[in-house]
Amino acid sequence: MASTTAQPVGNLPSGVGICTTAPDIFYLPELIFGGLVWILVASTHVIPANPQGWVMFVSVFCFVMTFLWMVIFACGGHRNSGGWAAADMVYHALATFFYLSAAVSLAKTTIDYQGDSNNFKTYQIDIAAVVFSYVATLFYFIHFLLSAIRWRSF
């Protein structure tokens, strides 16, 4: 008789299991802090738009891809073929690199913007965005490390 419960492929969980196992438990904090970066950067207007554009690209790209990645794992889409543990590790390594580069450029832009006393509220919002971008980087990095450990165990 076939079981109807979600059985993990190797060490990869599916269904509700992604909310209870490491590294997959980090999907929600990644989405929350990445979404906060997206919202905070979108709510400000800074004159050097190029670094802010990169930060917006990274936050939107990582938010959408992490959400899709989480849905694939929750629905059990990773059961159809192998290589998902390696793909999870590679994605989170790329997301970590992207978020680190975005956080550094956002911090540099915020430091350069510090002297403008007319837009102190914008400066405070940018500081919050910098902090949240570094927190998102940390969550992606932890997820990458735990995904690498999981990949090595296959």
Rank of each mutant, 00 (worst) to 15 (best):
T20K: 13
L28W: 11
A22K: 13
D112L: 14
F98D: 04
K108T: 11
L36C: 11
F67P: 04
D112V: 08
I47N: 03
F61G: 04
P13I: 04
S117C: 08
F63N: 02
Y123L: 10
P51G: 02
G76W: 00
V71G: 03
V71C: 10
P29L: 11
A107E: 03
T109E: 00
G53V: 04
V46G: 01
L40M: 10
W54I: 09
V41G: 03
V131K: 04
A22L: 09
V46C: 12
S81Y: 09
T122L: 05
I111Q: 08
D116R: 14
A93V: 09
T20A: 13
H45F: 15
W54L: 15
F63H: 04
Y123H: 14
A42L: 08
I25S: 10
A107L: 14
K108P: 02
I125F: 07
A74L: 11
L28Q: 05
G76A: 01
D126Q: 14
H78R: 14
G15S: 05
Y27K: 04
L28N: 04
I32F: 15
L36A: 09
G76D: 07
S105C: 14
E30F: 00
P23F: 12
S117H: 13
A103K: 06
I32Q: 03
H45T: 11
I39Y: 15
A86D: 13
G77Q: 05
I18S: 06
T96M: 01
P8W: 12
Q114A: 15
S59A: 14
R79F: 01
G34D: 06
A49V: 10
L12N: 11
Q124H: 08
G15M: 09
A74H: 09
Q52E: 12
G17T: 11
M70Q: 10
W84F: 11
L68W: 12
S14V: 06
A85M: 13
T96K: 05
N50G: 07
N118I: 08
V90A: 13
Q124S: 07
V37S: 01
A87L: 15
A74W: 06
M70A: 14
W69E: 14
T96L: 03
R79I: 13
W38N: 05
V41S: 11
F73Q: 09
F97N: 01
C62R: 04
V130M: 08
N50W: 03
P29N: 00
Y91H: 07
V9N: 05
A102Q: 00
G35A: 06
V104T: 11
M70S: 11
L28H: 02
C75D: 06
P23C: 12
A128K: 02
D112C: 09
S133F: 00
P8M: 13
V16Y: 07
A129H: 04
G115W: 06
D126T: 02
S43D: 12
F98T: 06
M56D: 13
V41T: 11
W38G: 00
Y123G: 05
V130R: 02
P23I: 10
P29Q: 00
T21G: 02
I47H: 03
F73Y: 15
S133R: 04
F67Q: 04
A102M: 01
L31R: 01
T122I: 12
D116H: 10
S105M: 15
A86E: 15
F132Y: 11
I127W: 05
W38Q: 06
A93R: 08
F63I: 02
D24E: 10
G82R: 14
L12D: 00
I72V: 15
P13S: 08
L31H: 08
G15A: 02
A49L: 08
F67D: 03
F132K: 00
L31K: 01
L40E: 12
M70G: 07
